[in-house]
Computed example of a mutant assay.
Amino acid sequence: MTTIATAPPQLADLGPIAQLRTGRLGRRLPQLYVGLVAYGVSLAFMVRGDVGLAPWDVLHSGLTRYLPITFGEAVVGMSFVVLLLWIPLREKPGLGTISNALVVGFAADGTLALLDTPDSMVLRVALMLGGIVLCGLATAMYIGAQLGRGPRDGLMTGLARRTGLSLRLVRTGLEVTVVVLGLLLGGGIGVGTVLYALAIGPLTQLWLPAWTIEPRSTSVGSRRLG
């Protein structure tokens, strides 16, 4: 019996107009927005778990102490700041990029308005673990829709493309770096922060092939997953 090897799916390096012209929008658009809302929900889960935030959220929560903004508004504001770091990487934004910058923060605020911090440590740990797993899945969903990576994940995919390193290694390196910077700035961390930094890369790498929707044409540059 002969086994035919199947090539891994591709992340296409397309501009914003080309991203829309490659078709399959009936699946890609819903996947994008479900992924973004789920991402915001996952961040709120970790906030209410209160046993350690995701690395970037250590910074976001710190901003709310000094500025009259909500947690979600801090997420939105920092998203546009991070987009400036795309310039040297020459990442191509898209509908998903701007949607990420806006939807994630508002989804987080909406979830926080509905969800209180449980008294039980078991439930808090469950929220933290659920938030990490959901975040990995949500990341794979909206990146796989190929409508433009989010600001922070654009750093991941841009560095992976430039260095040739795996998405898993680059994402883990970014998260660990942010944790260290957060500590230097006096940010608070917990066990959830460490687990997130170590797990989010492998989780995204695990689910991304299943959620990647290959565009009809990838004649413009692309990157194989792996």
Rank of each mutant, 00 (worst) to 15 (best):
L169A: 00
G130L: 07
L195S: 13
T139G: 13
G158V: 01
A108I: 03
L115Q: 06
T172V: 07
G201E: 04
P16G: 13
L134C: 08
I143S: 03
L20F: 11
P215W: 09
P93A: 02
V133F: 12
A145Q: 06
G35W: 00
V76H: 01
L84H: 01
P68E: 03
E175S: 14
L203V: 06
R223Y: 05
I69R: 00
A140P: 11
N100S: 04
A7Y: 13
T117C: 03
T2M: 14
L20M: 08
K92V: 12
A160W: 00
L85R: 00
G144Q: 08
L165K: 04
G23H: 07
L169C: 00
Q146E: 15
L129N: 11
A138G: 06
R171V: 07
S42R: 13
G192W: 15
M141N: 09
T139A: 13
G188S: 10
T6Q: 15
M121G: 02
A126V: 14
H60V: 05
P209C: 07
L43R: 10
R124A: 10
D50A: 10
G144F: 11
G110V: 00
M78L: 06
R152I: 12
L112C: 02
I189F: 06
D153K: 06
D109A: 02
L63G: 03
R24D: 07
E73W: 00
L137Y: 11
V179H: 05
L29M: 05
P93H: 05
G186P: 07
P55V: 12
L198E: 03
L95D: 03
D116N: 09
L155Q: 06
P151F: 04
P209I: 08
L127F: 14
G131Q: 12
T64H: 02
Q31F: 05
L102R: 05
G96Y: 06
D119K: 07
R223S: 11
P209R: 09
D13S: 14
E73Y: 00
G62I: 01
P68F: 08
I98M: 03
S219M: 12
L195K: 15
K92H: 13
R223N: 10
V170C: 02
L208T: 06
W207K: 03
V51K: 09
I87M: 02
M141W: 03
Q146D: 14
S219E: 15
L115V: 13
L11R: 05
G190H: 09
G77D: 00
L67Y: 04
Q10A: 14
T218F: 08
L127G: 13
P151W: 02
T212K: 14
V220N: 15
A138M: 04
G187C: 10
P8V: 15
G35E: 02
